[in-house]
Design a protein around this nucleic acid. Structure first.
Lengths: 141, 141
DNA sequence: TATAAAATCTCTAGCAACTAGAGGTTCAAG
DNA sequence: CTTGAACCTCTAGTTGCTAGAGATTTTATA
């Protein structure tokens, strides 16, 4: 049985974040010492690693909740899991697309001014003021 | 002079968001009718367009504050503006990089399971549980 | 002009996923 | 047995909004 600090070290998840995950129901309520401090076993470590890994891949807390639910029932169909993963994948792809558009536009704007003049003549500021100076679309989704 | 609703329609910024921008100091306090409703002129419309455009490009409220400050002083050096823009550009590039890593990993994981089995055998879940099943790094920044 | 509907006002609270800090208790080493 | 590190709970803050309540004002129609 290890303390929350030790668990934190091993998983690289901060202590308050671990407590937050518990509050959100991602982690079951930890066992406690007589003095009310949390203690974790191997199962706790593995679950937190799972969560951490999923968070690193950008899954939301809610999605992770569902994934854990499935993991806890080995006999259920895993369709929901693959659905969650592919929806996450398409989210990521959408974000990449949008960011690439932004990158293009930002780099074009940036190149327009070297920062040596005054703001009156600044192409960066002018571009923001006047959408007509823009190439493409960059609406929010 | 136009109402906040009209301004909202023209700029595609929602009414509560306009009020929020005012509260944050991005927009100056609007003139009011005798009945205390906000009225905007051309300058207000232009400023909000500027903000909206900058937000679309992903600039933070704080960054936009600085940009507006510069825009209001045409004689100042625009170095800060170009700095802000290029820092935003590099932020965007960093995000793209990270998302591409995620995309690779997610697509690899997704392909590993067609969702027709049970969760015990699901490659998606197994990958999340065991980091060794991963290719690369996908740490948070 | 009267009335009703639409728009506006302020205020508070909520979202995601944490992070920071206060003030107090417990654990582990020496 | 002391002391200092680690832990506890609780509240509030972060970012950029969005939603809703309850009250008032404006505008369009009868």
């Amino acid at each position: 049985m290890i303390s929350i600090g030790e668990l934190s070290k091993r998983t690289k998840v901060k202590v308050p974040t671990i407590r937050y995950y518990e509050e959100m129901g991602l982690l079951p309520e930890a066992e406690r010492t007589s003095g009310n401090q949390r203690r974790y076993d191997k199962a706790g470590l593995e679950r937190l690693s799972f969560i951490r890994h999923a968070r690193d891949l950008g899954f939301s807390i809610e999605a992770i909740s569902s994934l854990i639910e499935l993991q806890d029932h080995p006999d259920r169909s895993c369709e929901a899991a693959t659905d969650i993963a592919s929806s996450q994948l398409s989210d990521v792809r959408t974000k990449i697309k949008r960011l690439k558009t932004l990158e293009k536009e930002l780099s074009r704007i940036s190149k327009g001014c070297n920062g040596e003049g005054v703001s009156e003549d600044c192409y960066v500021l002018a571009s923001l003021a006047d959408h007509n100076l823009c190439d493409g679309e960059h609406q929010k989704p």
